[in-house]
Design a protein around this nucleic acid. Structure first.
Length: 226
DNA sequence: CATTTAATAT
DNA sequence: TATATTAAAT
């Protein structure tokens, strides 16, 4: 029962992924995570945006003991993990996200920590879109990293996530009879979200940097090393 | 060297 | 748990 998507945009190869997004149930159908999950008092304290209808995604701000992040552009949601033991000090450029210099490790200003990446829905969204636009064939870690253009994101990060993502796709639309109810992809916080709700006010983090624009690759001087 | 996959480690 | 890291095969 595979029905074609509406409004064939001309892209053929990426139909699969798009179908995946469209096949998702709406929050109204089965998502007890609507919003009355947290008492209004608490919500106000944490500035959680509770929306009545539409994309119900609270703007999480508590990843570090400081919620002052507000990035205008791509903002990596790294998490500062403590409990660091000894072990080397790898060089690592800071995520120059406009003053979001969260120095997890104070000291002599030598910040270089391999932060464990948190794939927030926004980042995952970018990931999915990048894969969709690259097609089933060109969706390789290197290209995905380039298209996402998220500073600090490495090829290994994407490769690891891509693994899980592919497994998820295989399980849902692999065998004609995908045994058992769909195993939902569960990254960090929420699993899926609507591509976009063309209703309600102010759209949230939803980038549109793809489409028919190669978007000048800001990756300056990235000589193909080999 | 890059990618995919499985197994493993944190 | 989710993500990273490794090893082997391509």
């Amino acid at each position: 029962m595979e029905d074609d998507d509406d409004a064939g945009a001309g892209f053929g190869a990426c139909g699969r992924v798009l179908e995946w997004e469209h096949g998702l149930p709406t929050e109204e159908e089965l998502t007890p995570l609507s919003h009355p999950l947290v008492p209004p008092t608490l919500a106000a304290a944490f500035r959680i945006d509770v929306r009545g209808t539409g994309t119900a995604f609270p703007s999480l701000a508590f990843d570090c003991p400081v919620f002052a992040h507000n990035s205008p552009t791509s903002h990596l949601s790294f998490r500062c993990e403590d409990e660091d033991d000894e072990e080397e000090g790898e060089e690592e450029s800071e995520d120059a996200t406009s003053g979001s210099g969260s120095s997890c490790r104070g000291g002599t200003g030598r910040a270089g920590k391999k932060a464990r990446m948190v794939w927030t829905p926004e980042l995952h969204h970018r990931f999915v879109e990048a894969v969709a636009h690259l097609g089933d064939k060109g969706a390789v870690p290197k290209a995905i990293v380039r298209l996402m253009n998220v500073e600090g994101l490495t090829r290994e990060n994407v490769a690891s996530h891509l693994q899980k993502y592919r497994i998820y796709l295989k399980r849902t639309r692999g065998p004609g009879k995908p045994q058992q109810p769909p195993p939902t992809f569960q990254p960090a916080y929420g699993s899926h979200f609507r591509p976009q709700q063309p209703s309600d006010t102010s759209s949230r983090s939803d980038y549109s940097a793809f489409s028919t624009s190669p978007a000048a690759t800001a990756r300056s001087s990235n000589a193909t090393k080999q």
